[in-house]
Nucleic acid binder design. Structure first.
Lengths: 163, 163
DNA sequence: TATTGTTATACTCTATAACTATA
DNA sequence: TATAGTTATAGAGTATAACAATA
């Protein structure tokens, strides 16, 4: 049996969903306007920029995308735009090594300040330092909890026409 | 000038984005499997179920959707599925009044317990009661702050090829 | 003129399955 | 056999602009 969410939980859930929807919408808007990037693509560039080297498609996909073909698609766009290159790996010839180009680094650098400003003004502006600590702590626990969850087949037990 | 996010903020931001992505992905999965609903549609049904009456398209759209045609599209699907009806308003003949049908109420009721369970197990499971209070408080402030933000044209000042 | 809502259209993204190639 | 990645394909969702009708 499942009992309903109490008012505290309900409020937190709805606010969480709406806040994240609003934030990612604005972030998408900004990245698109400023650099013709989707947030996924921004994430990929960010990883590659930090990696200071090459990543395989699989490493790149982790936590960013929910299907392999989705990553191939986005990587294709980034490659076509000259922001990354792909090359076969020598160590494991099944793997593809992805590298960020100078243009990719330049675009990332160009877009980053505005991105930060959007996040700051929308997410952090109404928060105190303590709030930020709480938020980080809570969100990291939630994220880790969800990452640890049984794979992608978590569709709760089916019920056929119970009504 | 925009200064970078400090490590606390960065951690909070990334965790927030990933957590919300994971949660909404799982929620979508569940609703689709259980009732062939997208989360948007679930939200619309939820509003109509609570409204205990009729809402106009505009009222229904508020906070759920980012374009009018998007709502028309979703409402069309819900109507085709027999979950809502649409009828012209007598008071204001421009308006469309939306009503949830018995089938809509039944589907909503059927799907709700599983939805709650998904949210509970993914979002609230790793949290204490205090965490929930904090989360609710913080999220509501963020949401309200974003709602109050200048409309939809908030694309921060353009820069042309500064590099 | 502004507002409510729909339509047409074009585009982006996603995901499944089939496939190739290497481990 | 399992893993890495791509391709083909098909479907769903989104947004813009043009439109009709009422306020």
């Amino acid at each position: 049996m499942t009992s309903a969410l109490d008012p505290q939980e309900l409020g937190a859930y709805f606010a969480f969903m709406e806040a994240s929807s609003l934030l990612s919408h604005q972030v998408e808007q900004h990245l698109r306007a400023e650099g013709d990037l989707r947030y996924v693509q921004f994430q990929l560039l960010a990883r590659l920029a930090n990696a200071r080297g090459q990543l395989t498609m699989t490493e790149l996909a982790d936590g960013v995308v929910y299907s392999r073909s989705g990553l191939t698609y986005q990587a294709g766009l980034l490659e076509a735009a000259g922001l990354i290159t792909r090359a076969p790996s020598a160590e494991d010839e099944r793997a593809t090594l992805v590298t960020i180009t100078d243009a990719g680094l330049a675009l990332f650098a160009r877009v980053l300040p505005g991105h930060v400003e959007v996040v700051r003004s929308l997410l952090f502006d109404p928060l105190t330092g303590d709030d930020v600590d709480h938020l980080g702590d809570i969100m990291q626990r939630i994220r880790d909890h969800m990452r640890a969850q049984p794979p992608r087949s978590a569709a709760p037990r089916k019920r056929r026409s119970t009504g």
